[in-house]
Write a protein that binds this DNA or RNA. Structure first.
Lengths: 95, 95
DNA sequence: TTGTTTGTTTTATAGTCATAAAACATTAGA
DNA sequence: TCTAATGTTTTATGACTATAAAACAAACAA
């Protein structure tokens, strides 16, 4: 699908979201994981604080690169592959 | 070609370079231009100052997204398509 | 009701980013 | 030598980013 300049704002959000080592690691982890991890799992895997993990996941969520499902107090995270296919085709396989 | 975590620093440079409206416009202009423009042409097309144009082109150059050839006092800019193919396959066609 | 787990928000801090304005530097023509 | 064109660097400024630490909040088990 061809994007236009009207998508530039979303495109910038996507690039901003991925212009950080921690968030790239989060995406890589989500890509390699078979089952969907919890928010705390992701932060723990990266060795960062809960509040820091929450901060970075919020940025990825705002950029629509991940989807989050809540079950009680727990939130499960999955990659939003359609967004990657649309804005960064082929990118995930380079991780 | 599959990239590894060792390429993460370069990957972050690439994403940082593209996480800005002005630099995305520069890349779009370079992609659509048949002949290679001068530094000043690019800045003028975007309506930004010479020093600002120099600043943004430096970031794109540092990220190896553009190649710059100097002829006397004039510098000509071209896209480094190999870098786009490696780090952002398919991205240029979405512009 | 209390305690635990999961997750978010707030505040403070240090560092980075994008721009303007001014100055600097190279090249080349007159 | 002087002027003009092209491009870079420096300084200052306001806005933004990433983190730590502390506090807050919802859900749920005991």
């Amino acid at each position: 699908m061809i994007l236009k300049q009207s998508d530039d704002q979303q495109r910038i959000k996507v690039f901003n979201a991925l212009a950080d080592e921690k968030r790239i690691c989060m995406i890589r982890l989500l890509f390699r994981e078979k089952n969907r991890p919890m928010c705390s799992d992701i932060g723990r895997s990266l060795g960062i604080s809960k509040s820091n993990g929450s901060y970075h996941l919020k940025i990825l969520s705002d950029a629509q690169l991940v989807s989050i499902e809540r079950e009680g107090v727990t939130k499960y995270v999955t990659l939003n592959k359609e967004m990657f296919d649309r804005y960064l085709p082929g990118f995930l396989t380079t991780l």
